[in-house]
Computed example of a mutant assay.
Amino acid sequence: MDAPPPAFDPFLSFEDVHAPRLGLDGLDLALPRAACSVLLGPPDAGGAAALRLLAGLASPTQGRLRLAGGDLAAPPPGWRGVGLFRAADAPPPGRSVQQAASDLLRHLDPPARAAHLARALTCLGLDGQEATRIGTLPPDRQRRVALARALAPEPSLLLLEEPLDGLDQPARQRLALELRALVRRLGLTLVATLRDGADALLLADHLAVLQDGRLAQQGTPQQVYEEPASAHVAGLVGENNRLPGTVLALDGEECQVRLDCGPELWARRGDAAGPGSRCILAVRPERVAVAALSAEEMGEGALPAALRDSVFLGDHLRLLLEVGRGGLLVAKRPPGSRLPRPGGPASVAWDPYAAFAFRALR
């Protein structure tokens, strides 16, 4: 299991946390202070359960939750509590923005309540819309109202369950970047669950991939993207080519693989087992070099290929290539690149350090 980076200062910690009814099975996880942490995985991976425990809505049957080195149940001085957003808790459409966003401020006197509300609405770009009925707002603005409700008490810890779910792509990107800026401006600690790897890369300072109620891998988004620990992680965090094959030999951190489509090559050993075991060779599309040359002309490690399709997507070309006997491979190349013609000579290559051999997924 991956340890946090050396400079990591754990703020929130799960220590061998079990909660069988919630699907947690020995979760060990450490999250940083004043940063955006994302728990990435499908709905049953354990992210929502972890948020419930942090919010005090459930308790573990085994293990401990720690806050700044102490017990989460006994927070340090200055602790302002937890703010929780869940997409399912959308405010009723007939209420005004002010009514919905001030739900958790009733314990404050009127001047303090007004100040808290104004700060929360301004942070989420809702100032001036206090009297607007929620049902008249577009979906992304309604989402901001619900987030303002969680933010208005000015908590120390903000928990967000699928905060980008249901929004179109431009709205997801805008909100993710604004949440990052908000964390930096306010010094918040934010923990969010997400199912989409692209959203996670956009939002996270610290990324934890969960699987079956346990930690699969954690680190910075770049670390997890560039050095995934398994085929499961690699598939969640960014696009990957997956070529099935069989392990032929191991040599330290390297692994020789015979692909089912024919070629034999070397890759970094991920979690692949020994010789004779089934594996997946994973390589990112942007790491695949493509040349309008024969493999011999391209050089050592190149594989003969055939271009099957090319799609222009603005900032890059998406190429579909065939290697060996029916092995399909996607490559991404900059516009203007010299590319092979369909039926003409072609080859592909990548740095063996950029490809990983993982256990085959069941």
Rank of each mutant, 00 (worst) to 15 (best):
L54S: 01
L124A: 09
L121R: 08
A45H: 07
A34Q: 14
D251M: 05
A291F: 00
T136C: 12
G270Q: 07
R113G: 08
P263E: 09
D127N: 13
D309A: 15
L151K: 05
F312I: 11
A171P: 00
P340Y: 01
L124P: 03
C255F: 10
G56S: 07
V283P: 01
F14P: 02
A49F: 12
L317F: 05
L190A: 00
S96A: 10
L31W: 06
H206A: 03
R133S: 13
W266D: 04
R287K: 13
P285F: 06
R21D: 14
G252Q: 11
H206G: 04
D16I: 00
P170D: 07
E239G: 08
R95T: 13
P93T: 11
L22Q: 07
Q129F: 13
R143W: 10
P228C: 06
E286F: 06
E227I: 00
T132Q: 14
D44E: 15
G245R: 04
D2W: 00
E227M: 04
Y353K: 13
G81D: 04
P10M: 05
Q218I: 01
A349L: 12
G235L: 00
N240S: 15
A282G: 15
D140C: 13
D199P: 08
L265P: 03
H107G: 10
T132L: 12
P77V: 08
P6T: 08
G270E: 00
Q142R: 15
P342T: 11
L293G: 02
D89W: 11
G69Y: 13
L29Q: 00
A45P: 04
P5V: 09
Q211N: 12
R195H: 15
L151S: 10
G344V: 07
G301K: 05
G23T: 02
D168R: 11
L40C: 07
E15K: 13
L317D: 03
A181N: 05
L126S: 03
E300V: 12
R308I: 08
S277T: 15
R195T: 13
E286K: 06
